[in-house]
Nucleic acid binder design. Structure first.
Lengths: 335, 335
DNA sequence: CTGAAAGCGCTAACAC
DNA sequence: GTGTTAGCGCTTTCAG
């Protein structure tokens, strides 16, 4: 009646189960996989019993080898300490689980994306989702890996590459339009700067459409630190903007502290809108108005694309501006 | 000179490489694995060239089947949206990568840990690290999975189970001692409550040692929401404590907002110390004094334990109180 | 409804 | 220094 098998014993295989149940190995497979051939109810029971008794656990590697599929996908991301990627990662894991897949995570904060991809290509993985921003030059190497790949949260459309992302340009415009709509005439920007940067461009073009002067634009990479320093730069400026569009929540966290230390109050002295819409924005002091990414939807689409024939399909979703206190507009009570 | 192989072609195997290079499959293995037999420099070059030409990528499943090892470990955690687990996950991934392993993540926020473990046990995984708090009843099932397991960040010591964690009890005492040392006589607690809860006990016992009355203790699960609500409960109390020990950073984030809304200033009206020491504490407003976990060290020990003979070894590290503004003591300039 | 057997792609004895 | 070959544990076709 001992149900915990000897630990030191050779691992139980399908052959052991077959022997114990008095059937062939094929039947064991039929039972365990519910097919592809039918099995008599009685036999099935015997097999299941043997499995129990022996404490048999199938060997996933053998199965993968045979089937040519591992039921594992890989998520490449800069890391999960950034709350947006944490959010994304949690959603990817949940969705994968719902579809019977598991997720291998690969962080590529300090190494090139090519190396990350190459590392992944040495594992047997059914598909890869890349949520890093991939430099154009690395794209070719990426495609050559041979593994079905889908770009997640990647701003640029890439030829021949499936991609699910959010229209950051429009998101940025939403933010600026909202601020302008509430009377702001001088709107600054903190984040990656340049014509390649969709959020910067959205901010820039939007101001142009409104024939407003371009507020100060301070370059910052995606980190709390960078936001913090940028805010200090900003408060040192002679002409302060009345509002600020910050390219990510993570940045915004740092910006808020920097402004606070500089004696600049949000939203009284400066209105602030950020981009991402993670949990942090809800519990920041004050809570931050943020262009919120439809992460659930994005992830669902990504998985759907995986089971799709089309080799090149781009899905672009529209983010939504969620109002909280940081922009000075009366936010809904609890958001 | 076309180096991108036909996509629709059957995947190239080691046999193809061998044929192309005019050697046996064994030699290909010897080259690719740098052993176990020596290979003539010239032959090696030919093989490597063939690999290049054919775009050969080894099949990890086959390798795993043969070797009985996958070079994958699994990290079970409640999820990465909690900044502490995000931190932990990033460190685990980095350390794994440094050791040539990859990590599959399994989130078990909404399912029982037993199910998570069972799911993991159907994958071929070399080892599992569990950073959830595992109910005692589930421990047996866990051990029976047969996969080398190590408890990460688990407060309780478990017989026959390797474990790396932090002395939360002492950590909590550090927090309270610090607050008492700075004149606080009424110190409250927010977090999981009860004699099982090491942080609660640390707070409780510490007050007892100082012969101080027990401040208000408000139960809260680990979420920003819960912290937020707890803070509102606290501000509604007739006798406010002058200081607060909060069981986690994530909770603290919510608490800070709740206090803010209740018109209670930190640290002027109430000093606050939390537990974990994630990035968020540095960029909170004000920055939060926190009992900081030695995550790097913890993770390194965990991996070391994996390659260790000892089946039951417990490593308990000591956290460190990192001073910031939230407790009202003059913090070092930039921490 | 059940069984025998041929691989899946790789590693590493073991021969030469 | 190189080649032959027997598996690793599983799935599934093809015969019964």
């Amino acid at each position: 009646m001992t149900d915990s098998p000897d630990v030191s014993a050779r691992r139980v295989t399908r052959a052991d189960v077959a022997r114990f149940a008095g059937v062939s190995t094929a039947v064991v497979s039929y039972v365990l996989n519910n097919g592809p051939r039918p099995v008599a109810e009685d036999t099935r029971r015997r097999v299941l019993e043997a499995v129990q008794m022996l404490g048999y656990r199938p060997n996933a590697s053998a199965r993968a080898l045979n089937l040519g599929t591992t039921s594992q996908i890989c998520l490449i991301a800069p890391g999960v300490s950034n709350p947006f990627f944490a959010w994304l990662t949690d959603r990817v894991e949940a969705e994968a689980r719902a579809r019977g897949l598991s997720v291998v995570i690969v962080t590529s904060a300090d190494e090139s994306i090519v190396e990350a991809v190459s590392r992944v290509s040495h594992q047997s993985i059914d598909a890869v989702m890349i949520s890093n921003e991939v430099p154009a030059t690395d794209l070719a190497a990426l495609g050559r890996s041979g593994i079905p790949t889908i770009l997640l949260n990647q701003p640029a459309d890439v030829v021949g590459m499936r991609s699910v992302n959010v229209d950051r340009y429009r998101g940025a415009r939403f933010a600026v339009e909202h601020l302008v709509g509430h009377g702001h005439q001088s709107i600054g920007y903190i984040g990656p700067v340049g014509p390649q940067e969709t959020r910067w461009r959205g901010w820039h073009d939007s101001l142009e459409s409104f024939r407003l002067p371009e507020g100060p634009s301070i370059e910052a990479v995606y980190s709390r630190e960078a936001g913090y320093r940028a805010a200090h730069e900003l408060t040192a400026l002679s002409d302060q903007p009345s509002a600020l569009f910050v390219a990510s929540d993570e940045l915004a966290t740092g910006v808020m502290l920097g402004l606070h230390e500089g004696g600049v109050r949000v939203p009284e002295d400066i209105a602030l809108v950020s981009f991402d819409g993670t949990q942090e924005t809800r519990f920041s002091i004050p809570p931050i108005t943020s262009v919120t990414q439809p992460v659930d939807e994005m992830v669902r689409h990504a998985f759907d694309l995986l089971t799709t024939e089309a080799t090149s399909e781009v899905i672009r979703l529209v983010p939504e501006l969620v109002l909280r206190s940081s922009c000075g507009c009366p936010p809904r009570p609890s958001q």
